[in-house]
């Protein structure tokens, strides 16, 4: 008879309490080092070559012209639309100057697809300042 075994599991779980994290009440579980979250994009490093635009499977990267930059040859930059992103990080594999790196931000739900937090224009710390 093996039935008492399942009863044993059930009783043990009853004493242990829930295994899951009650997220909105408690802080979320930390993510590992190389978690594929919202990518970190360094606008100053970017040379505007468009390799990431070419390899993005979902068309989430767009090549733009930045009018605030004085040198017209260095105006080409990219923007990431998180509403379309599938978090494959092929853009990071494509970047010749390593301007894209792993980001750990994952709380990205929004009612608006073009919400400001869903468009990556620069490193978050630089964007705030």
């Amino acid at each position: 008879m093996a039935f008492p075994k399942l009863v044993k599991i059930g009783l043990r779980q009853l004493i242990q309490g829930p295994v899951t994290n009650l997220f909105p009440k408690t802080p979320p579980v930390p993510v590992p080092r190389e978690f594929r979250g919202k990518p970190r994009y360094d606008r100053e490093k970017c040379i505007g070559c468009g390799a990431c635009v070419k390899v993005c499977p979902s068309g989430a990267v767009e090549l733009i012209e930045d009018p605030t930059i004085e040198n017209p040859k260095k105006r080409k930059k990219v923007e990431f639309y998180m509403g379309l992103c599938i978090f494959c990080y092929f853009c990071m594999e494509a970047c010749p100057v390593d301007a894209i790196s792993y980001g750990d931000e994952w709380l990205l739900s929004s009612y608006d697809k073009f919400d400001s937090k869903l468009i990556v224009r620069d490193l978050p710390e630089r964007e705030q300042s």
């Binding site: 993510v31 590992p32 190389e34 978690f35 594929r36 599938i86 978090f87 494959c88 594999e93 792993y102």
Partner: peptide
């Protein structure tokens, strides 16, 4: 999965001619 390859369900392990990570 999350620790090794950065994603829980879509793992992105494969790359043509090897692995991504």
């Amino acid at each position: 999965w999350e620790l090794l390859f950065g994603g829980r369900v879509t793992h992105a392990v494969n790359w043509i001619g090897g692995t991504k990570k």
